[in-house]
Design a protein around this nucleic acid. Structure first.
Length: 908
RNA sequence: GGGCUUGUAGAUCAGUGGUAGAUCGCCGCCUUCGCAAGGCGGAGGCCACGGGUUCGAAUCCCGUCAAGUCCA
């Protein structure tokens, strides 16, 4: 791990700190307190701040945040605005889980300069890992603000490192009125996300208020520094990554029994009132219950202890009956959780997450449904949207208020959807429960897993209603881990990325309409992949396919069929091997038709996206895009299906923008400047790496984009939306064509229409009317035919029965029925059987039907056997029930033989 | 990104390769002063769509579309 030297800071020495080893956990810590023997972290030390605040006065959330940020501003840090809680710039996490997440991966890796250095921020974060503990432990939250000061040091320029970091933290705490001897700094090496470094936890009165991480290692295969079995090496850049819990600071300043009573007492009270729960913290005995609960829950990992054990322990220490404790604490746990969860939802939906069945949207739905369950248990009748609105109205984000109508609509829709799922579930559970009750055995585990995994019915709810119906269920404690086990699958390894040094100059940005260029071959790989020093050919990227073109040397032409960017070099893949060598000078030519089609579709994508945003609302966010020569598709986040009228409006809006001939403006800007000017809406298509990002402005639409575009929207010509598809719950795909492809799409549709109109011999504008008339008539005729077949069968009955022979005392009819179809045969045979005949009817189409009446059945004659014997002669097969069977075969010529064989089989 | 499930009458659902069903709702008649209930009768189905296997597919296989759900 890390040696003492990593932690022996001048600051500690100068301030009179001593390094001690905790007599309980054995970890090292630093303290000013000469008599302290333990590290200060639960369970070595209990919470002592409840009822005894550690700061000189109470602070609310806003006040504390402002105090913190201005403290660091006054000490040379630049205050920067928070990032969204949905981590759109990351592809490895969905939610922002820490302030440093804002700067990963490009800033922390040194590829991109930080927006300011040093900086301070208060970043709302969401962590759903401890969802079960929220409300119960007194301290867990799904949503919290991580206040931080970050420094990005390089070997060339160090701003500050460990000493100054700890000093700033210590002075902040003392400035708030903390006793100097109250704080301990516990050594606790940190590792995560491919980085590691020494770290200290800042503990006051049993509460971890901050973690100060000195990130200077990166995971390296075979690295010489070993942490938890992984190898690490020193980084060239080293980062101060701190995290201060805003909510914990507020809690410590108030010393209330729970963190919830500290950070949103007004809402706790309001929800308690709505639920009819009395929550009087001024009652010392009542307050002590929650205080003691928080203290003891603070000492344990809630996974290790069952809640029941914890409860009886708490009841014991307070000296009340466990039932009394249960009664006081349980409704409040739910109320705390509801208030926490609705704040979480305010942030999720406010920052633009659309509930879905996948990705970040799934997490939002998870929280929504959990909250609805809690509300139901509390008997809260009001809509979830109202509670979230209360949260939004007490937070200071103007754009959320603007979007409130949409947010409420989303929540109402989710609430309704969940009610439907539960209703469906109730029916399913009823069916399952009755099935197993009749068999007199418990509903097996496999069924319970299927109910939950496939139909979303929580096992607790399933058990309750199943038991209400008199069935028992098999439900082990480790149910959820059993479910998880069914999902386990081997992870596939990613192919190692090719690394090629060097750089190819990209000419297509500066000269988007140049067709030819000259370049030198820098390298040839595998005989057919050519690296040039410069190129006009666009490599595949950003949902835009690669250009095609030609490289020419000395009159010989080499077709380029694919272009890929690897690192900073561009690989040109040739159709055939051989011919070009390192050092050759070549003349390149771009296939402009393809390039232009891509450019039109690319610019059109921006227009369709922006139009969708105007028509559907500001919650629209690009979830993916792909272009080709003849069509493009755009995936957008939207919480319901796009209806036809909206689609037409989007199409019209996009085409108006084409007609307005707006210029397309592209320029490279430093990343932080672009972000400052345009915000995160830039990153519709993901976050590009690099210090400079290319900003593409199409009228009011501004995006970071590396693709090739036309220079004026008029060049797109036309946009035709082809279809929409819901690729996920919450994500709509719009497919459209631009330019010539749009015209072709119109023409194809005209052809379809003309073709259909031609078949029905009507003008195209009468197609719908005529088609529906034909369809209705067809249905009517089908019914008429049914009736006629019925009548026909009755009419045939007389002549058929006249042909009957008697065999073994049974009336037998064996007949050829011309071209009759299977339906006619069936109906006639069934009627004969009703009259107690044994019938075998065949048709020249190779179909056979046999039917056996009462007497035949009594004698053991089976229609199936007759058919099998007869159909065999036709080279086919058949079967059915004893009283009615059908069959047939391809060898129609053998029909007589088949009937003869069938007749033989009638002798039982 | 992966797993599982479903698509049959207006609604809820049966139907495991052999003539498409039930319940509720709808319409008509009977009964009633009237209504409800009850009795009798009836209408209502491209069994999501396209292919395949088979003598035969709502049913089995493949694909498409639509919907639900769990996980990362």
């Amino acid at each position: 791990m890390f040696s003492e030297d990593e932690y022996r800071l001048d600051f500690f020495v100068d301030e009179g700190f001593q390094r001690k080893k905790c007599e309980k956990c054995g970890k090292f810590f630093w303290t000013r307190d000469a008599v302290r023997k333990t590290c200060g972290d639960p369970p070595c030390d209990p919470y002592t701040f409840i009822g005894a605040p550690v700061f000189s006065r109470e602070h609310g959330l806003d006040e504390m945040r402002e105090h913190y940020l201005s403290y660091f501003e006054a000490r040379g840090h630049t205050r920067i605005a928070r990032y969204p809680v949905v981590a759109r710039w990351r592809d490895d996490i969905y939610l922002t889980i820490a302030s440093i997440a804002d700067f990963q991966p490009f800033v922390t890796s040194g590829q991109v300069p930080p927006p300011a250095n040093p900086l301070t921020i208060s970043q709302p974060c969401i962590r759903l890992d401890d969802l079960d503990s929220v409300g119960r432990s007194g301290r867990h939250l799904t949503t919290f603000e991580m206040m931080a000061h970050h420094v990005f040091n390089t070997r060339e320029r160090e701003i500050y490192w460990k000493d100054r970091t700890v000093q700033l933290c210590d002075e902040l705490l003392r400035g708030l009125g903390m006793e100097p001897t109250a704080v301990t700094y516990k050594e606790n090496p940190w590792a995560g996300g491919g980085n590691a470094g020494p770290s200290v936890e800042c503990l006051v009165a049993g509460l971890e208020l901050a973690t100060l991480v000195f990130m200077d290692l990166k995971a390296t295969v075979g690295g010489s520094i070993k942490i938890k079995g992984e190898g690490y090496e020193k980084m060239d850049n080293y980062i101060v990554d701190t995290g201060y819990g805003l909510e914990r600071f507020v809690w410590a300043s108030k010393g209330s029994p729970t963190i919830y009573d500290a950070i949103f007492p007004d809402l706790v009270r309001k929800v308690a009132d709505l639920a009819g729960v009395e929550h009087d913290l001024k009652d010392p005995e009542y307050a002590e219950i929650f205080a003691q609960n928080a203290r003891l829950a603070g000492m344990v990992d809630l996974d290790e202890y069952s809640m029941k054990d914890l409860r009886s322990k708490i009841a014991g220490t307070i000296g009340i009956a466990p039932e009394r404790l249960e009664a006081s604490i349980e409704p409040m746990e739910r109320i705390y959780a509801v208030v926490d969860h609705t704040r979480c939802l305010a942030f999720m939906l406010g920052d633009g997450i659309i509930p879905s069945n996948v990705k970040a949207g799934y997490l939002a739905r998870l929280v929504i449904r959990r909250t609805l369950r809690l509300m139901k248990e509390l008997g809260l009748g009001l809509p979830l949207a109202d509670l979230v609105e209360m949260q939004i109205s007490r937070l200071d984000y103007p754009d959320w208020k603007e979007r409130l109508v949409t947010i409420k609509e989303i929540l109402d829709q989710e609430e309704q959807k969940y009610a439907e799922t539960l209703e469906k579930g109730r029916r399913l559970v009823k069916k399952t429960a009755e099935h197993f009750r009749k068999q007199n055995r418990p509903v097996p585990l496999q069924e319970m897993i299927s109910l939950y995994d496939t139909h979303g019915i929580p096992p607790e709810i399933a058990r309750e209603s199943a038991e209400g119906l008199g069935a028992t269920v098999e439900l082990p404690d480790n149910f959820y881990s059993l479910v998880a086990k069914t999902h386990i699958k081997a992870e596939q390894e990613e192919a190692p990325k090719l690394i090629i040094p060097g750089k190819t100059e990209l000419l297509f940005y500066e000269h988007p309409f140049d067709q030819t260029f000259e370049a030198r071959v820098v390298e040839v790989l595998d005989g057919d992949s050519v690296i040039l020093d410069r190129t006009l050919l666009y490599p595949e990227g950003g949902g835009q396919p690669a250009d095609h073109g030609i490289l020419e040397k000395g009159g010989l032409e080499f077709r380029v069929v694919d272009v890929q960017k690897v690192g900073d070099v561009v690989l040109h893949k040739l159709e055939k091997q051989g011919g070009l060598q390192k050092g050759d000078y070549v003349k390149g030519k771009v296939e402009m038709r393809r390039r232009l089609a891509h450019a039109r579709h690319h610019t059109a994508t921006h227009l369709v996206h922006d139009s969708a945003k105007r028509i559907l609302g500001k919650h629209i966010w690009q979830a993916g895009a792909q272009k080709s020569e003849d069509r493009a598709r755009l995936d957008i986040s939207h919480y319901k299906r796009i209806i036809d009228a909206e689609l037409k409006a989007i199409e019209m809006e996009a085409n108006r923008r084409v007609m307005e001939c707006e210029p397309v403006d592209t320029k490279f800007l430093p990343r932080s400047e672009a972000e400052k000017l345009f915000g995160f809406e830039l990153y519709q298509g993901g976050v590009p790496p690099g210090k400079q990002i290319r900003v593409v402005k199409v009228g009011s639409d501004i995006e970071a984009c590396a693709g090739t575009h036309v220079t004026n929207t008029g060049m797109i010509g036309a946009i035709k939306i082809l279809r929409t598809e819901r690729i996920q719950d919450g994500v709509e795909r719009i497919e459209f064509a631009a330019g010539e492809a749009a015209v072709r799409a119109w023409q194809e549709r005209d052809d379809l229409l003309a073709g259909a109109a031609d078949v029905l011999r009507v003008p195209a504008d009468q197609l719908p009317k005529t088609a529906s008339r034909f369809f209705e008539e067809w249905k009517g005729q089908q019914k008429e035919i049914e009736r006629l077949k019925e009548d026909l069968a009755k009419a045939r009955l007389r002549s058929l029965s006249a042909e009957a022979q008697e065999i073994d005392g049974l009336k037998v009819v064996v007949q050829k029925m011309g071209q009759a179809d299977i339906d006619e045969l069936l109906k006639a045979a069934a009627l004969l059987a009703e009259q107690d005949y044994v019938a075998l009817l065949g048709s020249e189409t190779g179909k056979l039907v046999a039917a056996v009446g009462k007497s035949g059945l009594a004698k053991g004659v089976k229609a199936g056997n007759i058919i099998k014997a007869a159909a065999k002669a036709l080279g086919g097969g058949g079967g059915g029930r004893p009283e009615l069977a059908q069959g047939g075969g391809p060898n129609v010529a053998n029909l007589d033989e088949a009937l003869r064989a069938g007749r033989e089989a009638m002798r039982a």
